[in-house]
C-alpha cells in the first residue's frame, strides 16, 4: 500500500513548472486547483509541486512583511502585502481542507482503491490512516461488537454481502459545470459513442463528471 506518490508528483512537477513558466502564475494555478478540488466529486491528485512552491512564496512574503514592519516602511504598502498574503493563505488552506473533508468522507473507499490512495500526499495518507483507525474503533465499540458475528464488518452489511456495500463512494455520474480555455472539438459522452458534445473554448457546460474525468485530470478542462 505504501505508494509511489513521490515518484508520481515529481514526474508531474516538471510539467507544472513548465506550464507555469510559459503561461500562468502560481496564484492562478492554485486558484484553479482549488476550484477543481471543490467541484470534483472525487479526490484529485495532490498538487505537490504547486503546494510546495506556494508555501515557499508565502514564507518569503511573511519575511518581507516582517522586515517592512521592522524598518518602519509605509504602513499602507505593508497592509497591501499582508492582504495579498492573506488571500494566498486562504486559498491554500481551503484547498487542503477540501481534500481533508473528502478523505474523511470516503476513507474506506480510498483505502481500497490504489489509484485514489496514490493521489494523497504523505501527510494526508498518515491522516487517513489515523482516521480509519478511529472510525473502526468507534463503529466497533458503539455498534458492531454487539451484533451477531456475521454482522461485525464495517465494510459489509452482513457476511452474505458479496461486495463491500457499506462503504460510501463518490458518485461519479454526478453532473459538474466545466469550462475549457481551448476548443476541444467533438467529445464523446458515453462509452457507446452515441452522444457527443462539441466543446468550444470558454463556454460553460454541464456534463457528467464521469465522462470528462480524464480531461479534468490532465488539466484540459476546469471545473467552475
Amino acid at each position: 500500500m505504501e505508494s509511489g506518490a513521490g515518484e508520481r508528483s515529481s514526474q508531474y512537477s516538471e510539467m507544472d513548472d513548465y506550464e507555469s513558466l510559459i503561461s500562468t502564475t502560481d496564484a492562478e494555478l492554485l486558484k484553479r486547483a482549488w476550484q477543481n478540488e471543490k467541484a470534483a466529486p472525487q479526490i484529485l491528485r495532490f498538487e505537490a509541486a504547486l503546494v510546495q512552491r506556494s508555501r515557499e512564496q508565502i514564507q518569503l512574503m511573511e519575511e518581507t512583511v516582517e522586515e517592512y514592519t521592522r524598518n518602519g516602511s509605509d504602513p499602507l504598502t505593508v497592509s497591501l502585502y499582508q492582504m495579498d498574503l492573506d488571500r494566498t493563505l486562504f486559498l491554500l488552506r481551503s484547498y487542503l481542507r477540501t481534500r481533508l473533508q473528502k478523505i474523511e468522507k470516503y476513507m474506506f473507499h480510498i483505502q481500497k482503491t490504489t489509484e485514489l490512495w496514490n493521489r494523497l500526499s504523505r501527510p494526508e495518507q498518515k491522516f487517513m490512516g489515523r482516521c480509519i483507525e478511529d472510525m473502526e474503533q468507534h463503529l466497533d465499540q458503539s455498534v458492531l461488537s454487539k451484533l451477531p458475528s456475521s454482522y461485525k464488518s464495517h465494510l459489509k452489511q452482513s457476511s452474505s454481502s458479496e461486495e463491500d456495500d457499506m462503504v460510501p463512494e463518490p458518485q461519479l455520474d454526478t453532473y459538474v459545470i466545466c469550462r475549457s480555455n481551448r476548443f476541444l472539438g467533438a467529445f464523446q459522452l458515453d462509452d457507446s459513442g452515441e452522444e457527443t458534445v462539441n466543446i468550444e473554448a470558454d463556454d460553460l457546460y454541464a456534463l457528467p463528471y464521469k465522462s470528462i474525468k480524464p480531461l479534468v485530470e490532465t488539466g484540459q478542462i476546469d471545473l467552475v
Binding site: E195, V197, D203, L204, A206, L207
Partner: peptide
C-alpha cells in the same frame, strides 16, 4: 439531454 451548454452564463448565474 445528456449535456447542457450554458453559453455566456456568468459565474453567479451558473
Amino acid at each position: 439531454t445528456y449535456a447542457l451548454r450554458l453559453k455566456n452564463l456568468s459565474a453567479m448565474e451558473a
